[in-house]
């Protein structure tokens, strides 16, 4: 039996999430992860790689990224440049073919974890251009007439921030998991991972206040997990009394990043 993903010391995965990761691995399908910012979509791939002891390749997608960039790059400009001087061998195209992240994952000697981060940033057609490559786990290099097929099917984790709809054909081939924002108990566990020595009373007050701030509907940007962790650090190192948290929101700037939002919180911040 292969090793199963269970989450790591610093990354707490819900049962549903680890099951889905394991199912995606077993079925050899890419896993698409969505969720609010700060729910640990990107970190998931890091945790999977760490827990299963595999190498992680990260492909950061930008608005200008083309699907082909992930497969291979034929560096024509370099070749053209080299041709002007006679110190390179420009007759062999292979010297100018560079593997992209997907290509790297296919040619690796062992199974790797491939993170395709923020796939929705790219062009609408981007996911469609990867369909065949992710299905067959192989691609063809026209310039050298070579076919690269995966030696070991990589574990592919794709994150999306929901900025664009992904095409249906692409979705059909993925497994999908939506990371819901952690509830209060889960959040307690998450904070404790980062601050194991925190007093329970303090933590309880912090969490209560945090979810209260999140419940304010008019906020432009609700604080997320990474903000609460920074906030706890600030409160702990500032030695803030739990009673003070009950009355006000100390170090509000750590939690809220937008000026208008700060005004909203201050206006609403009254003792319970």
């Amino acid at each position: 039996m292969k090793k199963q993903f269970k989450g790591t010391e610093s990354y707490i995965a819900s049962d549903a999430l680890s099951e889905v990761v394991n199912a995606a691995t077993a079925l050899g399908r890419p896993l698409l992860v969505k969720g609010e910012p700060g729910t640990g979509k990107t970190l998931l791939a890091h945790a999977v790689a760490k827990d299963l002891g595999k190498r992680l390749l990260v492909w950061n997608v930008k608005s200008t990224t083309k699907a082909r960039d992930g497969l291979y790059i034929y560096d024509t400009v370099q070749r053209l440049h080299d041709s002007r001087f006679s110190d390179h061998d420009v007759s062999d195209i292979k010297n100018y073919i560079r593997m992209g992240k997907l290509g790297e994952a296919f040619t690796a000697d062992e199974q790797v974890v491939l993170l395709i981060d923020e796939i929705d940033k790219a062009d609408l057609e981007f996911p469609n251009d990867l369909l065949n490559e992710l299905d067959e786990m192989s691609f063809h290099i026209h310039e050298t007439d070579e076919t690269i097929s995966a030696r070991h099917r990589p574990i592919v984790i794709i994150t999306s921030n929901n900025e664009k709809e992904l095409p249906d054909a692409f979705l059909r081939r993925c497994l999908f998991h939506f990371i819901a924002f952690p509830d209060e108990q889960m959040m307690e566990r998450i904070v404790k991972v980062h601050h194991p020595d925190i007093e329970n009373k303090l933590l309880a007050e912090i969490i209560k206040k945090f979810y209260w701030v999140r419940s304010l509907d008019s906020l432009r940007k609700k604080p997320s997990t990474s903000e609460i962790i920074d906030w706890v650090s600030a409160l702990v190192s500032g030695g803030v009394d739990p009673r003070r948290i009950k009355k006000e929101v100390p170090f509000l700037g750590v939690l809220i990043k937008k000026e208008q939002d700060i005004d909203i919180v201050l206006a609403q911040a009254n003792p319970y």
Binding site: D15, E19, A23, A24, L31, L171, C174, F176, H177
Partner: peptide
């Protein structure tokens, strides 16, 4: 993969069948 459990089946089927 469902471990013969209905809860696991519920989550796994959701991951495979529902994409939004």
């Amino acid at each position: 993969l469902t471990d013969a459990s209905l809860s696991v089946f519920y989550r796994l089927a959701r991951a495979i069948l529902v994409k939004n």
